[in-house]
Design a binder for these strands. Structure first.
Lengths: 191, 191
DNA sequence: GGGAGTGATGGTACTTGGTCCCATCACTAT
DNA sequence: ATAGTGATGGGACCAAGTACCATCACTCCC
């Protein structure tokens, strides 16, 4: 089954992250990334639509989150469906073994405006996916959008804390805590 | 005072928007934009850091919003400070005379992934600026972040409605209405 | 009124991301 | 063996963006 070398994508991602961390995103050329992975520019662009995307896994996250929200127990409140989804991704993608990678990746993005732009787009897509999934559950348009905004903030806070936590906290734990905090900080409607 | 022709930026923006609407962003070259404005590629990049930015006014909006939030009457709730800021930008930048331009611009962005990416980044910057301004008012970190998320949603909804409204509603009016709706759709903290 | 200075513009060469297209290679099935 | 299939290599090409220098329009000042 295995031709040439295995998992070209993974090798490209690893090479890219290494080089970005070493000499910065802008000073790294696609050809260099490919060479370090034993491949060529052509092959790189066959696996990723552009240089940025090598650090972003398509919309796997968005679909996973959306599916988990739809699959949450019927009748629960929007933010409880979100909680269910956060727990799911905590167990399926934000596992302990990937924390180191996530942290390095995050540092590179934080240092690169061009990557922040891509991340902003992904975040927006994520929020839209959450809102859409909530609507599928019957949540009214506006409530879904508001809940999605709160979910996006929760996810961001949880991710940051998960990445930088010294003691190994599971993502799910961190996320539940973050969600409770966000809920507590939500303004009571005065009027 | 006026050399050559006046307002090169404005002419470049107008040329770009026209061409993008005519033949699409991707099929339009920077050289074409410059030529239509009676300028050259060099001059284009002297006025804008890249091709995308010709449709985005730097961070003028973010600073204006942030300043207005800081300048809101002391002691009012976070979302009331936001309301004050929305009213300000409604009177200063989202004026009736600019609605047509905004609508055309919005249509082009909606048709162009590359521009949506830039817009996503701007939206994130806007949210961060709002949160930061609220913190300057003494609003605690978390409350500021939550309020900023709700403000971002409000701004987005109001902007969409303002652009597509048939009868000339002032942006401030639309924004106030949107804010009330968002507040009404905010989940009551059950636990 | 003429010349030095200043800021905006024009033009060219270069690098790199990204596309296209075709040749080639490794492996598989018959 | 042989044909077929899917992944890779390689080269030509275009456009975005950078760097640098020449040039032009206007201002200021003597």
């Amino acid at each position: 089954m295995a031709r040439w070398q295995a998992n070209p994508q993974e090798r490209l991602v690893a090479s890219a992250l290494d080089l970005f961390a070493e000499k910065g995103y802008e000073n790294t050329t696609v050809i260099e990334i490919a060479q370090r992975a034993g491949l060529t520019k052509s092959t790189f662009f066959r696996h990723f639509p552009d240089k940025r995307e090598v650090l972003f896994g398509g919309d796997a996250m968005a679909t996973l989150l959306a599916d988990a929200i739809v699959a949450a127990p019927a009748g629960v409140a929007p933010l409880d469906a979100v909680a269910h989804a956060l727990d799911t991704i905590g167990r399926e993608v934000f596992t302990a073994g990937r924390r180191g990678f996530a942290a390095r990746r995050s540092a590179v993005i934080a240092a690169t405006p061009e990557l922040q732009e891509r991340e902003a787009l992904k975040a927006l897509g994520l929020t839209a996916a959450i809102a859409h999934a909530l609507k599928q559950r019957g949540v009214p348009e506006l409530e879904a959008n508001v809940a999605a905004q709160l979910a996006a903030l929760t996810l961001k806070l949880a991710y940051e804390r998960w990445i930088s936590s010294t003691h190994d906290e599971a993502f799910s734990e961190v996320a539940m805590q973050a969600l409770r905090h966000v809920q507590a900080a939500t303004p009571t409607q005065s009027r």
